[in-house]
């Protein structure tokens, strides 16, 4: 059934095939763009709703890798992405922290831990439920083996340590975020009193800057 090839018909057939196929795919892309975007947004919302209480809008900060979740202008909390090195590779979590500094819940985004051991970080109920309402002011954020209050997964101390470290890093990000949020309010009152007290000081307080 094969046709004899010559330059003309090879170019024509190949060219026509590619044109036709690209047209079909272009059309399909346009038709499916909306459902794809919707599915992606839903996935993000679902991930965040697992780690924070009810919210109506969410905003992503690319640089700090965190989501600010609000419910009608009220700050519901921050969902912070945090990555550490686990036993088998990168361990990525999303940690939901409410404004009072308490961990609302955590969820694993991706991991390469050993099945049956570290991989239990996504299935072991006892391990997962201890993060709900974890208050770092009251409980120590290290595994019990290191003198802390975190129950490790059986025979997976390394993964558990990495998990605790990821939560700790997320809380550090939260601390800087809440400082920035509150310093925005203090700076205007603070700079006047500072200038009065240290008239000779070289430090100049500009609105919004916090010096440590």
């Amino acid at each position: 059934m094969a046709v004899k090839s010559n330059l003309t018909n090879m170019v024509t057939v190949l060219g026509l095939t590619c044109l036709l196929c690209s047209a079909i795919l272009g059309g399909a892309y346009v038709l499916t763009k909306e459902p794809i975007d919707k599915a992606a947004a839903q996935k993000t919302n679902q991930a965040i709703s697992q780690v924070l209480p009810h919210f109506t809008e969410v905003e992503y900060n690319e640089e700090g890798r965190y989501y600010t979740a609000k419910d009608a202008e009220n700050l519901v909390g921050y969902a912070i992405e945090s990555t550490t090195v686990g036993f088998g590779g990168a361990l990525s979590l999303i940690v939901g922290v409410t404004p009072d500094g308490v961990v609302y819940n955590t969820s694993v985004l991706s991991h390469s831990e050993t099945p049956g051991l570290g991989a239990k970080c996504t299935t072991d109920q006892k391990f997962m439920s201890q993060w709900k309402g974890f208050n770092p002011a009251v409980k120590k954020l290290t595994v019990t083996k290191d003198g802390g209050d975190v129950d490790a997964i059986t025979a997976s101390t390394i993964t558990s340590r990495a998990y605790a470290l990821a939560v700790e890093n997320a809380l550090k990000t939260f601390a800087t975020l809440s400082e920035e949020a509150s310093s925005g309010a203090f700076a205007r009152t603070g700079s006047r009193s500072d200038a009065e007290e240290d008239a000779s000081s070289e430090i100049v307080n500009e609105g919004g800057q916090n010096h440590e």
């Binding site: 090839s5 095939t17 590619c18 196929c21 892309y29 499916t32």
Partner: peptide, 30 residues
Amino acid sequence: PVVPDKVHIPVYIVVIATFVTLLQLLMQAY
């Protein structure tokens, strides 16, 4: 019947790839 003999593999692959991409877009959406 109309595909020249020497280019039949690239043509077939383009066709197959089109359907696979179609499938991919549909799965991603739904």
